[in-house]
Design a protein around this nucleic acid. Structure first.
Lengths: 161, 161
DNA sequence: CCGGATTGTTATAGACGATTACAATCGGCG
DNA sequence: CGCCGATTGTAATCGTCTATAACAATCCGG
């Protein structure tokens, strides 16, 4: 069972969305979608900065956290959580396995599916990752006070629902 | 000057990020970045629905709106607004030109740069696009009342800054 | 007027996700 | 029990998007 070695890391969008001086943004400034994107890019940059050198992307982060919190999860469910196809979930899993962070275990009850588990190394890695990302997220969120932050999370949840 | 015909349309991520029942999301639910992404995907789906059949993506939408509001803008500046490299701005412009929505005009003062302008067809197209996207955005935003919406936009701007 | 910066362009490569097809396995129903 | 549709992981392929690097034409400041 030969398989291509998983790819290294090169993030797709490192550029912030600058507000170009003297430019008319027209309807964009009234669109919730555009404001959301601007804010999300800012948060992504903080994320990327925080995980510098770890070869981590948002999907990889989410996958590792979810596996850590839900041991024995299947690749299919993982893909569902991330909103990607099964084939993508497999490549992602390949990457984590190749880095020694995750292992596939056979399930006694269902021999089609794998159960995904963090290795000891994976556990340590996830803990370090979480610490850094949390801190970076909080640092960005510090632009808001506690009440505003709570309100923002509430409104975002309402929107996503 | 032969050039490949611009590509047709196939959006990258059509899937919402579902909240899988019985799953532990651990730290994700406390991260601003993750909440933002969930909300943004929801808005993107509304956007995609609204522009169905128009072969429009968010960057294309932004580009057309910006050109409409800032005639004679250069490709470089356009790329800067979008946060992409010049080479990408050119492919994007190629697409708009091939669809007859935009034309490149020589600038008398600077013969390196093009000035981008909407064609008449482009103007009509942008108007229709704006109407649809605005409506879809508003429909999503209707999950919030007027005060909440204003507050959300304010907080997002603070975050992005 | 000359050398460095800017603009558009082309070519190339990489990351990522979708789609499709396939084999193994599961599960329900007759 | 046995069959058939559904599910799981896998593999192969394709399309889209973006970056990088190199290049020519042009601009601009000392």
């Amino acid at each position: 069972m030969i398989r291509k070695p998983p790819s290294p890391h090169r993030p797709r969008a490192l550029a912030p969305i600058p507000r170009v001086a003297g430019l008319d943004y027209d309807v964009l400034d009234e669109l919730l979608g555009y404001s959301l994107r601007r804010a999300q890019v800012a948060l992504f940059l903080a994320f990327h900065e925080a995980t510098r050198g770890m070869e981590i992307t948002p999907p990889r982060f989410t996958a590792l956290v979810v596996i850590g919190a839900n041991p024995d999860i299947s690749q299919s469910t993982l893909g569902e959580v991330l909103g990607i196809a099964r084939s993508g979930a497999m490549l992602l899993t390949d990457w984590m396995v190749a880095r020694g962070l995750v292992e596939r275990r056979r399930r006694p009850d269902d021999r089609r599916a794998w159960g995904l588990h963090l290795t000891r190394r994976g556990e340590r890695f996830v803990a370090r990752m979480k610490r850094r990302v949390r801190a970076a997220d909080a640092r960005r969120a510090a632009a808001l006070n506690a009440r505003e932050l709570r309100e923002l999370l509430r409104l975002l949840a309402k929107l996503a629902g």
